[in-house]
Amino acid sequence: MRILPIITAPFALIACSAGAEPEMQTSPSGEVSGTMFVANKRGASLSRIDLSTGEETHRADTCENPHELTVSPDESFVLVACYSGRSVEIFSTSDLTPVGPLQLGENARVHSAIWLDDGRVLAGAEGRGSLYVIAAFMDRGAIAPIVSFREIGRGGPPFAPGPHLIAVDPGGRYAYGTIIPNGDVIRYDIENSAEAASRRIGEQIEAVAISPDGTSLWVASNTDSIAYRLDPLTLEVQAEVPTGDVPIRLAMHPSGDFVVSSNYGGGDLTVIHTATNEAVRTIIVSGNDDAAQVTLVFSQDGTRLYAAETATDMIAEIDFASGEVLRRLPTGPGGDGLAVID
C-alpha cells in the first residue's frame, strides 16, 4: 500500500520593486508543449489534450456535472470534482484510466478540490457547508476501501452553504473558501480542523486566488465587478480594484506579480499588478458574453493563459505578454475545469 502523492503546483517567485511594474514574460520560441485536462460539465467527461498539436488524445466518462480539476505533484493523476454528487474521481494522466472514486457525505456537491504535498486532498463540500480533508491510500494503482477523512464545517443538517471555490496557502496550513450566496470568505485552519475566521466581503463572492508567498489573498464580486485584496489572516479588505463585467475566476501568475480576472460578462481579462493594486491592462478574448468564459489557468511558466469558453466548447490559448489569442482548442461539451502540466 502506498500513499498517493499529492500537492499544488510549485511556484516561482520573481521579485520586483514596489510600485514598479515588472516586465511581462515572453512566450518561449518553438512549439508549445505540455498536456491540458478539461472537465466537460455538459458532457460528463474528462478530456486530455496534447498542447503540441492541440488535439484531444483521450476522453473518459466521469460523474455528472464535473467541474474543477487538480493534478498530483508527480503529474501521474488528475482529480475531478463532482458538483452534482457526493464524490471526487481520480484518473491517470497518461491515458485517463479511471483509478476510482472517493465517496463523501450525502449532498457533498464538491465544486473544487486541491491536492496537498502531505498526502491529503482538500475538497469544498458546497452542499454540506464544509471542507473535507481527505487521505487517499492507494493499493496496486487503485483506491483502497479504507479512506480516512475529516470534515470542517458549521454543522447540520440543515446545512449552510459551503465553499464554491477554495485556495490554500503555500504552507498548507490555511485554506480559504468563498460562499457565493452570503458573499463570505472563510479561512479554515486545516491542522486544527476549525473555521478560524469569516468575513462578509460583498455580493456574490466567487473567485479566489492567493499569492505564491501567501501574503495576499484575492477574491472577486460577480455582482459589483470588483477584485478585493484581503489580509490572509484577518480577511480585512486592503484594496479594491475594478475589473471587467462578472469576474467569475481569478488566476495568480506564478511570479505573484499579477492576478488576472476572467470576466464572464465581457469575454475579456483584467490584469492587475499586485505591487500597486491597479488594473494595468485588458485582454480581449471573445469580447462578449456569448462564449460563457469561465475557468482561467496559467501555464506553469506563466507565458500562456488558458480560458474556458464553455458555450462554444473551446479553450482559448492566450499569449500573456502580447494578449494575443494564439488558437482555440476544441474540447467536449461545456469544457470548464482546467489543469495544465508541462
Rank of each mutant, 00 (worst) to 15 (best):
I166D: 01
L250M: 13
A196C: 13
G244K: 01
L165T: 03
T223R: 14
E236W: 09
I201W: 02
R200V: 10
A196R: 15
A239C: 06
T215H: 14
Y188D: 05
T243P: 00
Y174D: 10
A209E: 01
W218M: 07
Y176W: 06
I210N: 04
V219S: 03
I186Q: 11
A196E: 04
D224N: 05
P242Q: 08
D231H: 11
S221F: 01
R229C: 11
Y176Q: 06
I201C: 04
L235V: 13
Y188W: 13
S225N: 12
S255I: 09
P242S: 08
D213K: 07
H253C: 12
Y228W: 01
P232Y: 05
L235K: 12
I179N: 13
A251E: 04
S225R: 04
H164I: 14
G244I: 02
S255P: 01
L250R: 09
I248L: 12
A167Y: 06
P212E: 07
I210K: 07
G244S: 01
L230N: 08
E236K: 11
G214D: 01
A197Y: 09
G256A: 04
R199N: 15
E203Y: 10
V237T: 05
S211T: 15
V219H: 03
M252N: 06
S211D: 10
E240S: 14
G183V: 11
G214N: 03
V219K: 03
A194Y: 02
D224C: 01
A196V: 14
P181L: 11
T178A: 09
V237N: 00
H164L: 14
P170E: 09
D169C: 07
M252V: 15
L250G: 09
N222L: 10
V241W: 05
L233T: 02
V185N: 06
Q204K: 11
A207G: 14
Y228C: 00
V185K: 05
A209H: 02
P232W: 06
E206Y: 14
H253T: 13
R229Q: 14
L235F: 08
T234Q: 02
G171C: 10
T223L: 15
P212N: 11
L217W: 04
D184K: 15
I205E: 04
S225Y: 06
A207K: 07
R187D: 03
H253W: 10
E236R: 12
V237C: 00
E191Y: 05
D184I: 15
H164G: 11
V219I: 05
A209G: 03
T178D: 07
L250W: 03
